[in-house]
Design a protein around this nucleic acid. Sequence first.
DNA 1: TACGCGTGGAT
DNA 2: TATCCAAGCGT
Length: 305
Amino acid sequence: MTATTATTATSTTPPTALHTPVIDWFDKHARDLPWRRPEAGAWGVMVSEFMLQQTPVSRVLPVYEEWLRRWPRPADLAAEPPGEAVRAWGRLGYPRRALRLHNAAAAIAERHGGEVPTDHHQLLALPGIGEYTAAAVASFAYGQRHAVLDTNVRRVFARAVSGTEFPPNATTAAERKLARMLLPEEPATAARWAAATMELGALLCTARGPECAQCPIAELCAWRRAGSPAHQGPVRRGQTYAGTDRQVRGMLLAVLREAAAPVERAVLDRVWHDPEQRNRALNGLVGDGLAERLPDGRYRLPGTG
DNA sequence: TACGCGTGGAT
DNA sequence: TATCCAAGCGT
């Protein structure tokens, strides 16, 4: 619990000065995404938020459309075996999200009368919903006033307000405090602000190659005013992927996803040469509930026929 | 707090 | 080709 002096860095700029230019820009340039349309409803917003956790919009779009057509309400998804959710997840990555979304749908069907809860605390209690997603659903689906801090917003605030090229590796108390201070008073405006700052980070204020020439707050941006100094501090360690358990898990699950019937162990054994790592990956999938071992020794997605 | 967890497009 | 990056969560 160190001193959290939220450096506003806006000694010359009141916090509200950013609202109008950012929201006006959003009114003009917001993408027409299906989960932003009124007919998406809270369930559509929630499904999109799960899929967008660490996965780009372009890859989410077709899978989202298929999910909402197939499972238009939480109870529709809950009525299916979890393996169907994993299969329909396709190649979005991080398939545990599919399992958590299925579990969340079951909880909504049982505990919330089939309706996505409006209460932030109840949202947070659902599997797969953390600080960001709870705030996002409450804000985007229900127009509530919450600080929505995703990687885009954090980067926008780091640059525009704090004057650094990138935010810290992990979300800090100072960032949360700053986000709350910047939040417009009116709930509807706050929700608009949340979506607008995310969109600004996604379209212009990107990690690499920000397009400051088109930015509605370039004149106010603390990072630009400081001369766009290069990032200082520890390099963010890149995640190597080749040869990891994650890669092996992905290859195993791809076989199960595409199989119409339970798969022989010998077939799974062909996806990776090292038996130790292969076994560890397969047992990990079973332990996570992403795969199921039948009494005859074959494997399948959980609960699928 | 740091780490494990998929996948594929962009640079 | 290798690295970076993408609307995080749970432990």
